[in-house]
Simulated scan of single mutants.
Amino acid sequence: MQFDVVSVRQSTHASESRCKDAVITLDTDMAGNREAFNPAELLLAALSACMIKGIERVTPILKFSLRGVEVHVHGVRQDVPPRMESITYEIVVDTDETDRRLDLLHDNVRKYGTVFNTVAPGTELSGVLRRKVSL
């Protein structure tokens, strides 16, 4: 499997990345651009998308029933050398499945995610998968 993305500088304030029929505006402004993801935020978004896609992939195989998924990701940047020092996440699943089945789902997310397994070796990556609490 191969992937191709093309990114082009639009101005001093933003750039664009294109893939297939999709376009994402990038924050490449040195002062920041609140209307776009900066590179670190894109990394965290890619990680969260990887987790959700992994869940979508395994739920039919595991016959896992869910109503929704939400992923919260927090990254801490180290200045010297510049890198993502640590990333923590919380996956919230709206489901009636057992705790044992939630653990199985989390194991699959950690084991089979392409972005997850790319980020994990170079970053302190930790998190939880929990059930959504109904009010």
Rank of each mutant, 00 (worst) to 15 (best):
M30V: 14
S7P: 06
D94E: 06
G32S: 03
P39L: 01
D29E: 05
F64H: 09
F64W: 07
V92I: 15
L102K: 07
M30D: 12
A120G: 01
E16R: 08
V119T: 07
R130T: 04
K111I: 09
D4M: 08
I87E: 05
K63Y: 03
I91G: 00
G54S: 08
Y112N: 15
V58I: 14
R110S: 14
F37H: 10
R67K: 15
S126N: 09
Y89Q: 11
K53N: 03
V5E: 02
G122A: 03
P82S: 04
G127S: 01
R34I: 13
V8S: 01
N108E: 01
V133G: 02
F37D: 15
H106G: 06
C19G: 11
V133L: 07
R100V: 13
E124W: 09
A120V: 00
G127K: 04
A45L: 12
M51S: 06
Q2D: 01
Q78V: 00
L43R: 01
V76W: 07
F64S: 08
S48I: 02
L102D: 14
D29L: 04
R34L: 11
N33R: 05
A120P: 00
K20S: 06
I91W: 02
A46V: 08
D94S: 13
I52H: 01
K20Q: 09
A45I: 09
F64N: 10
R83G: 08
R110E: 15
P121I: 01
V23P: 03
L105S: 04
V128F: 07
P60R: 05
K53F: 02
P82D: 13
S65K: 10
V93K: 10
T123E: 12
F37Q: 14
P121Q: 09
R77K: 14
V76C: 10
H106Q: 11
T28L: 02
L129Y: 10
I55C: 02
R18H: 13
V6P: 01
M51D: 03
A120R: 04
C19H: 08
V115F: 06
I91T: 09
L66W: 06
D99T: 12
V133Q: 03
A36R: 05
R101A: 08
A40S: 03
A22H: 10
V119I: 13
M1V: 06
V92Y: 11
E90M: 04
G54F: 04
A36C: 05
S126F: 14
S126E: 14
V109L: 00
L47F: 07
V92F: 13
V23K: 11
P81W: 04
H74T: 15
G113A: 10
N117I: 11
D29Y: 05
T98D: 13
S134H: 13
G122S: 10
P121Y: 11
M84K: 04
L104H: 12
D96C: 05
